Simulated assay, not measured.
Amino acid sequence: MNILSRSCLAACAVFVLAASTAHAEPEPTALVDQQHCMFCHTRDAPFLAPSFQQIAERYRNVPDAQFMLEHKLRLGGKAHWGDMAMPLPADRGGPLSAEDAHTLVQWVLSQ
């Protein structure tokens, strides 16, 4: 194998590795803003609530977690992390459709 072939092979391996680890969904900015998510959460550090990365680590591989988190987004819910419960939709920016809840949870779990 010549040096050009090795370089090409190495470049392809780096590209495949980068593509397989870069799985985060693009942020649904309008929904995040509408629901005031950043009032309590950040992407990578706990604030008033767990970070999106902490949520993803905890629930990414849990069966039915997607459904549970969507339900919690749509209706609010009891605290699973510390003392702060998920506020009711009326307190965070209004009702959230099932589709929008799904989009937000998909994004959070991709962190």
Rank of each mutant, 00 (worst) to 15 (best):
M1L: 12
N2M: 01
I3K: 09
L4R: 14
S5V: 07
R6A: 08
S7I: 13
A10I: 11
A10K: 04
C12G: 05
C12A: 14
A13E: 05
A13R: 00
F15H: 00
V16Y: 01
V16N: 00
V16R: 04
L17K: 08
L17G: 12
L17D: 03
L17M: 15
A18I: 13
A18H: 09
A18R: 11
A19P: 03
S20D: 08
A22C: 13
H23K: 14
P26W: 00
P26F: 07
P28V: 11
P28K: 10
P28Y: 06
A30G: 03
Q34E: 12
Q35M: 15
Q35K: 12
C40F: 10
T42K: 10
R43E: 14
D44H: 13
P46Q: 10
P46Y: 01
L48W: 08
L48H: 04
L48G: 04
F52V: 01
Q53M: 02
I55G: 00
A56E: 00
A56N: 03
A56R: 01
E57F: 06
E57I: 01
E57Y: 00
R58L: 06
R58D: 00
R60K: 15
N61P: 02
D64S: 07
A65T: 02
A65R: 00
A65Q: 04
Q66N: 01
Q66M: 03
F67W: 03
F67N: 05
M68T: 02
L69A: 00
L69T: 00
H71W: 10
H71F: 06
H71T: 07
L73G: 00
L75E: 12
L75M: 07
G76A: 02
G77V: 10
K78T: 11
A79K: 07
A79W: 02
A79G: 11
H80D: 05
W81L: 10
W81Q: 08
W81M: 03
D83S: 13
M84C: 02
A85K: 02
M86F: 09
A90N: 11
A90R: 13
R92F: 07
G94S: 09
P95R: 08
S97H: 05
A98P: 07
A98H: 12
A98K: 14
E99V: 14
A101E: 02
A101R: 01
H102C: 06
T103A: 15
L104P: 03
Q106W: 09
Q106P: 05
V108I: 15
Q111P: 05
Q111L: 13
